[in-house]
Design a binder for these strands. Structure first.
Length: 569
RNA sequence: UGGGGUGUCGUCAAGUGGUAAGACACGGGUCUUUGGAACCCGCAUUCGGAGGUUCGAAUCCUCCCACCCCAGCCA
């Protein structure tokens, strides 16, 4: 428990401008507590960009001893579904955050919001407008020209009250009338040109059913929901900066419990992927990926299925910082956070992905030895396990070369290497098939080197992982890589479509992989390091006890691969 | 041609008048029964540009340039 707490306190959000504002507000006495909120619209799945916001909002509240609300911004019944509220709750929970009792819905406030709208009308600050959607657009003006006032702008309070009430009762068709705030049609900020705050939608809502046929817009509902909940700091992304004057205007007109401060920060962009809901949906709809939880997707469900630990995502979100400039974070940082976490926690196993048969000529045919292997050299507390060794083994195809280039110091004819936790072996011969392909490597072992050390002090340059043929468990292994070939797939200057930059090798499926026998016991949710290969986990969707499927979470850093590439250039 | 933002290393990002943190990436090295990990070293005389103020400027002033967002009864 204490250790847990200690670990948590290390997970602080590093300094940033929002934290500065909060600290100043606490210091000056403007606030005595911090109340934030994460306000998703339940119309889609969460992705790692949302994780940044979640970690910020929940992290800040946690750190200052306040709280963070989970509030669904469900003001548009046309787009929202119950299915998404459940998946969003699951994702937030999985990321490690708890909203406690503070689960809210903007739709919980529809009655109060309606009353606030009436109050605005009574103050002469809102009016019912009969203009059609097209006319409203025309009257709004353009970015460089001011708008024109609606001919309905100066209706009497009584008439507005009556019309608004009749809107509520369902006397009008969709688009026939709206309620608008009366602000300034000449404002340079288009959001202030008498924005629509209520519209007619004859649609049933996932929570309020058919009780309402008028619904508040985001601008009206959001600030008031914040005020109702006593939010102190309302943190959102940059595109809402232009909405802040409206946020403040609405709260200034009304008798509200408090006036939260809206603060904007730059949303997360990640290299070698796309983040917009529209683009992710296209990947799903065109069958380019296996659904929203495809392990290559930046969705929370995709990251989860990929096997990425939530702690690594939290750490990543804290490391990227919070600022106002548009940026693209290098996905290598995410990968680093994943390796960093898994290196410390993941038990090691041996798994041969591309098997090459090795026969140890001087090892008895029927003998089996149980060799002790360390589960995690970074954490000896994880203990050891026994792995069977016998005469016929598999090693990695890439660990043998008949004609090795310089700097390759794995197995080759005449060479001696170490089999991890086992023996030194020396290659004596190779066996090829009719096409010349090497199908078997013949070796001898040195019985004196059991455990991996030579009594005579003899050294070897390489240590290979291996699996005993007789004992191996078969598995399918899916090697995942970056979805795109270019850092910024939707930033093509020549207007090329982002799918033109897909990485054809983002998924490589390997069958007939040979794993050490203990891995039959692997369970969904566990993560392993397959030594010298990377980190892997069972696929939660497709793996079956008699047909194991492992996903590669991330590779190990591979210096040899770098050398090899340099050599071939 | 309107309004709102932003420009510090390849990528993020500190710094808020006192002489450019840190991380990732990258390069080199030590060590190693994972070519993993760990450890060490290197990596912006310069802060979008040009002027100016000052003993002193990334930080203050002026002008300019670039990029992002806004004309949903979406959020």
């Amino acid at each position: 428990m204490t250790a847990q707490k200690g670990a948590k306190s290390q997970e602080k959000v590093p300094p940033n401008f929002i934290k500065d504002i909060i600290e100043e507000d606490l210091r000056s006495g403007k606030h005595t507590t911090v109340i934030t909120r994460f306000p998703p619209e339940p119309n889609g799945y969460l992705h790692i960009g949302h994780a940044k916001s979640i970690v910020l909002n929940f992290g800040l509240a946690e750190e200052f001893g306040g709280r963070c609300h989970l509030r669904f911004d469900d003001t548009n019944p046309l787009k929202e579904e119950e299915e998404f509220v459940e998946s969003i709750k699951e994702d937030v929970r999985w990321l490690g955050y708890d909203w406690g009792e503070h689960l809210y819905f903007a739709s919980d406030y529809f009655d109060r919001l309606y009353e606030y709208a009436v109050e605005l009308i009574k103050k002469g600050k809102a009016f019912v407008c009969d203009l059609s959607p097209e006319e409203i657009r025309e009257y709004r003006g353009t970015l460089t020209e001011p708008g024109k006032e609606s001919p309905y702008r100066n209706r009497s309070v009584e008439e507005n009250l009556d019309l608004f009430e009749r809107m509520r009762r369902g006397e009008f068709k969709e688009g026939e009338r709206v309620l608008r705030a009366k602000i300034d049609m000449a404002s340079g900020n288009i959001n202030m040109r008498d924005p629509v705050i209520y519209r007619i939608l004859h649609a049933s809502h996932h929570r309020t059913g058919d009780k309402w046929c008028i619904y508040p817009t985001y601008d009206f509902a959001h600030c008031l929901s914040d005020a109702i909940e006593g939010i102190t700091h309302s943190i959102c992304t940059l595109e809402f900066e232009d909405h802040r004057p409206l946020y403040d205007w609405i709260l200034d007109q009304l008798d509200v419990p408090c006036h939260p401060q809206q603060i904007e920060f730059a949303r997360l962009n990640l290299s070698y992927t796309v983040m917009s809901k529209r683009k992710l949906k296209e990947l799903v709809d065109r069958g380019i990926v296996d659904g929203w939880d495809d392990p290559r997707m930046p969705t929370i469900s995709g990251l989860r299925r990929r096997g990425i630990p939530p702690s690594a995502i939290r750490e990543f979100c804290k490391r990227i910082g919070v600022a106002k400039r548009d940026s693209i974070v290098d996905i290598a940082l995410l990968e680093h956070c994943i390796r960093d976490e898994l290196n410390k926690t993941a038990p090691r196993r041996m798994g041969v992905l591309r098997p090459l048969k090795v026969v140890i000529e001087n090892y008895p045919e029927d003998k089996t030895e149980e060799l002790e292997c360390i589960n995690n050299p970074e954490d000896m507390g994880q203990g050891t396990r026994l792995v069977p060794f016998s005469r016929v083994l598999y090693i990695e195809e890439t660990d043998f070369m008949e004609d090795p280039p310089k700097k390759f110091y794995r197995l080759a004819p005449g060479r001696e290497v170490r089999l991890r936790y086992a023996y030194f072996i020396r290659c004596t011969d190779v066996v090829k098939d009719a096409s010349g392909k090497i199908i078997e490597v013949r070796c001898t072992y040195d019985p004196q080197t059991k455990g991996g050390n030579a009594p005579d002090g003899r050294r070897v340059k390489a240590t290979l992982h291996w699996v005993s043929q007789r004992h191996a468990v078969d598995a399918e292994v899916r090697l995942y890589d970056r979805l795109f070939n270019v850092p910024n797939p939707d930033g093509a200057k020549d207007g090329r479509h982002f799918t033109e930059f897909l990485n054809p090798d983002s998924l490589v499926t390997l069958k007939g992989c040979k794993l050490e026998p203990g891995l039959v016991e692997a369970k969904v949710g566990e993560r392993y390091q397959f030594e010298r290969n990377g980190y892997f986990c069972l696929d939660s969707k497709d793996s079956r006890p008699d047909a194991l499927v492992f996903n590669r979470i991330v590779t190990l850093k591979d210096t040899w691969e770098k050398v090899r590439r340099r050599l071939s250039n």
